[in-house]
């Protein structure tokens, strides 16, 4: 034990401080610690601070559990909450969850997305009958809905004025760049002009009811095989 006494410098004192405070050191070593604390002001202050800190820790009160703590734990584990505390805590926790702004925003976005999908697909909830809920009808319902949405999209696209204007500009460009066919002997143009129909918002060429008898075979073949001619006037 003399070795301990002789080698008791400040770092060693610091290492043994907790053991000394807890009474874990043998008597001789504890006596050496006491003597060092009396002689060394820094180690004395360290010991004093340690004792005060441990007293302060011991004075910390045991925290009280939140009132819903145990019922919540039981509800999340064995599901015995109802037996212990009734529905009150369950409803309160549910209300707390629903009261979160994040949850409300998510709910609103989900509702908006659902309404948008139903609107686009043309589904009306008040027109759904009990027979529509039979699984055997689901494929046909889905197929019909898909076709309806597709047709509506195509119709909308075809009705766009800008589409016709772009097509007209393309045709005009292609007419200017294509070689001019030989003039008809009668002086009539072999390509009828585009006419704008404001009712249907379509551009159409007026096809002559009866091809002129003087048309040559070349011009007849061109009229019949020209794609835009067939697409617009038939």
């Amino acid at each position: 034990m003399n070795d301990f006494f002789d080698s008791l410098d400040c770092p060693r004192f610091e290492e043994q401080a907790s053991d000394f405070l807890e009474g874990r050191l043998p008597d001789a070593a504890a006596a050496a610690m006491r003597q060092h604390a009396r002689q060394c002001p820094a180690c004395g202050r360290l010991l004093e601070g340690l004792h005060s800190a441990l007293d302060a820790l011991a004075d910390l009160p045991m925290p009280e559990l939140p009132p819903d703590f145990i019922p919540t734990v039981l509800a999340r584990t064995s599901g015995q909450r109802q037996n212990l505390a009734g529905w009150g805590p369950t409803l309160r926790s549910l209300g707390r969850m629903l009261w979160q702004p994040r949850f409300a925003m998510g709910l609103a976005l989900a509702w908006f997305s659902l309404a948008l999908l139903l609107n686009v697909s043309g589904t009306h909830l008040n027109r759904i009958h009990a027979a529509d809920l039979a699984p055997a009808r689901w494929p046909s319902l889905v197929s019909r809905t898909v076709r309806r949405v597709y047709a509506r999209g195509v119709r909308y696209y075809n009705d766009l004025r800008v589409v016709y204007e772009i097509q007209a500009a393309l045709h005009a460009g292609s007419r200017q760049s294509s070689p001019v066919p030989p003039a008809h002997p009668s002086g009539q143009s072999q390509r009828p002009p585009y006419n704008w129909n404001p009712g249907t918002r379509t551009l159409a060429r007026t096809r002559p009811a009866v091809p002129p008898a003087s048309l040559t075979g070349w011009s007849l073949a061109r009229i019949e095989t020209e794609p835009d001619w067939k697409g617009r006037c038939v």
Partner: peptide
């Protein structure tokens, strides 16, 4: 409270506990 009095103190006594806080 000074260092000498601290050094002369006895080791920490065993603590007493309540049931819940034991």
């Amino acid at each position: 409270m000074n260092a000498a009095s601290i050094a002369a103190r006895q080791p920490l006594p065993a603590r007493t506990f309540t049931w819940l806080g034991r």
